[in-house]
Design a binder for these strands. Structure first.
Lengths: 440, 440
DNA sequence: ATTCGTTTCGCGCAGCGA
DNA sequence: TCGCTGCGCGAAACGAAT
């Protein structure tokens, strides 16, 4: 393809591609012309981001077919044609209005000193070498890039607006690609990938913004952690209060009243500190749980759903537990339910906490199993009370508050405890099929 | 200057400039050669920052005279001369060891799919267009730049190491200058001015680092705040405990034992809630303080330094306070000390807190004034005990715990209080010159 | 695979400016 | 003279049509 002919018809060709009729040179804010007050060094360029945003043509108006026609075809789309390189005595100003103040304002430049004189003024309107330099062109190019919101730039359009050969654009894009500030998006299209254009670095870029966001989220998380901790502290103080201790228990209704336990199978476990819970393999079809206590007996209670069905034996599932002497180191004996079917339970809370399991939708109303309390220690009456008002107080043996007591928080070593898998607990309940509870 | 001759003697020229004898191509980590697995898009380049840091020639070894000799002069310094562009059947490997894996590994590239094929393999060792592309060259250039600590780079040296015409270097520098990532430092010297080189953006830059630091400091501050809050909460619980209440008092010795009160004049004030303290003008030579209570009487105690001097009357400054009926709204009557000289006191704490004033070094041992208790309310015995063991309990009138009781924290409205300037308190103590206490 | 129109761009001449 | 650099030729690369 021949580029020469363009020189013969500078700007004479019809702006067939719907290009803006304005002179491309008018696009550039003053800063992008020849330097006005060079600081007398080899650094020519100073301002990159002018405040004034000149009226720019809508980008993308020339995105369609490339304007380069084959050899003898119609004149190239290039408006205000560039003068060919070697032209020296080309008819200046023909086909392009000479706008010296935008082209080479060096003439009107107030010289600070002799050194700063940028290039030879020569004939005003003459393009100095600087005016067509790659550096300046790069600035213009970047400026163009900064104008488009999505950072996408059509190279043909750019070449036309910048009034340069496409070749020069390639020079720029290649380098910018090299430092990965730009990416080839498509043919004739590149896209800016530097963070947030060349905004002044004091303002946070996108990444920095994300970092900020992350930071705030972490802060929020920490605050929440603090709140949790404070709550637990408050809780500790609450439960440690002797006055509260005698009232610190829950009834069966209390447990069933908890919204989260709706439609859930709840099993309450009361065990001494250092009891350990173990779930060997939660992927087996038979969930097994082992509770092991070395400090005393473990009590396990099933809290069946509030049943209306007369056939359900769950109505009075909590017979007063008999009191047994503590049997440390004894694996918790338990009643047996559907063999091999046990409840997953974790007991993060104090001595006794209810545990829930998603209710399987499969069997209609599952035959709720009357809870069978196992060995209990001391004289604990009514581990789970059915009545609403229950303010009797047990003889207050040390460590055994009435019923399900809120034991002191975990941050005291004495009270730290866990549940551990023993053996017998897997058959705590009979005929209670929990087989598919694991599905959820 | 003629560049042609180089083609005739690729690399044959003596490395006269003390250049490293190694092939320049060995400088580049694998990532900078032909792409291995292109993602099948127009984006050719992927890795910019290779992990492997190849042994690089000491920069600056060729900083002196430009190796370009005039026309017929000595062969150009360029080592391992670049093969001329058009050469197709050039004697490959002569003057430069063919290291295909560094040059154009595309031959051994494991193709993921047909699309990803980077350029035409052709004869291995053949330089594809990509291998000499401006983009790749830019990467190498940036890499060179990143190697030098101060960001200064000698263009001639770069051209040699990069094994390209100087002209190409200019292409790069011009563009980089245009986006002001680089600055012309001197002839043949440019300098990097982008922040912190192109380290991968995941690692924090200097600014980001500072932000990080700030963040951590803020986090620390918050943590400390939390600790403070927790402490005050603990304190609240501590003081609210009824069991503690009867023991919550301080003795004279306690106060004097506080390290901070060493060498200080301490005045304790016990006043009901809503008592207000006012210091009219702390710049006058006579410090005046007004205490005003509308809820009940105010008690003020001077706690003189533990005196060894027999002349000091401070030994028994705390006569048991007499109990008076509450006189609400009564301005606190007080004994008078050196007229016009009063103590600055703020009482942020609960009902009664000691207050300190820096001891002026001027008068030798200031004549400590025996404290004269003013009206006190209720039957408060020994507001400040001298004895160590004091566990008696006053009749426990509501609101008046024994002696200097730690009242509940401030976050209960009932206990919020302040001291206010009344009138008479300015003459609480006689003959106690506190005039220059303000100096410190 | 081959052709062909296009796009991309290596390359180095020649002119500028000091 | 000598860095520096605008400039554009022409070939490689590409992709769609053949």
């Amino acid at each position: 393809m021949l580029r020469g002919p363009r020189a013969l018809a500078p700007g004479a060709g019809p702006p067939s591609k719907g290009l803006p009729a304005m002179s491309p040179t008018e696009l550039w804010p003053p800063g992008l012309s020849s330097p006005q007050l060079c600081p007398a060094t080899a650094t020519y360029y100073t301002s990159l981001y002018p405040q004034t945003v000149p009226p720019t043509a809508a980008p993308g108006t020339c995105l369609d077919a490339t304007p380069h026609g084959p050899e003898g075809q119609a004149v190239r789309c290039v408006p205000a044609g560039r003068l060919p390189a070697k032209r020296k005595l080309d008819l200046e100003g023909i086909g392009r209005p000479a706008i010296p103040e935008f082209r080479t304002p060096k003439g009107k430049c107030i010289r600070v000193d002799g050194l700063a004189s940028p290039r030879t003024p020569k004939s005003p309107g003459e393009k100095t070498r600087y005016d067509t330099s790659l550096g300046l062109l790069t600035k213009k190019f970047i400026y163009l890039l900064s104008e488009s919101k999505d950072g996408v730039l059509d190279l043909n359009w750019a070449a036309e607006v910048l009034d340069v050969q496409k070749r020069r654009i390639y020079d720029i894009t290649n380098v910018l690609e090299g430092i990965q500030l730009i990416r080839k998006k498509a043919k004739n299209n590149i896209q800016w990938v530097g963070r947030e254009m060349f905004e002044d670095p004091t303002r946070p870029g996108k990444q920095q913004q994300l970092g900020q966001e992350l930071k705030e989220l972490m802060s929020t998380e920490q605050t929440l952690d603090q709140l949790i901790q404070r709550c637990s502290l408050n809780f500790k103080h609450l439960t440690e209060d002797k006055a509260n201790k005698r009232l610190a228990y829950v009834t069966y209704q209390d447990i069933r009243a908890v919204g989260n336990f709706k439609e859930q199978t709840v099993i309450a476990v009361k065990a001494p500190p250092q009891t350990r819970l173990e779930v060997p393999d939660r992927r087996e079809e038979n969930l097994q749980i082992y509770l092991k206590s070395t400090q005393g007996p473990i009590e396990v209670y099933l809290c069946p759903e509030e049943v209306q069905e007369p056939d359900s034996p769950a109505k009075k599932p909590l017979p007063p537990t008999s009191t047994l002497g503590p049997s440390p180191d004894a694996t918790q004996p338990s009643s047996s339910t559907d063999p091999g079917m046990t409840e997953p339970m974790a007991s993060p809370g104090p001595a006794l906490t209810p545990q829930q399991v998603p209710q399987p939708p499969a069997p209609p109303p599952l035959p709720l199993v009357p809870l069978e309390a196992t060995d209990s220690m001391l004289e604990l009456p009514h581990p789970l009370l059915q009545q609403t008002e229950d303010q009797f107080l047990s003889p207050s043996l040390p460590c055994s508050s009435p019923l399900i007591s809120f034991s002191p928080p975990l941050d005291q070593d004495d009270y730290l405890w866990g549940l551990d898998g023993g053996e017998g607990i897997s058959d705590l309940f009979d005929s209670y099929d929990l087989g598919d509870l694991l599905i959820n």
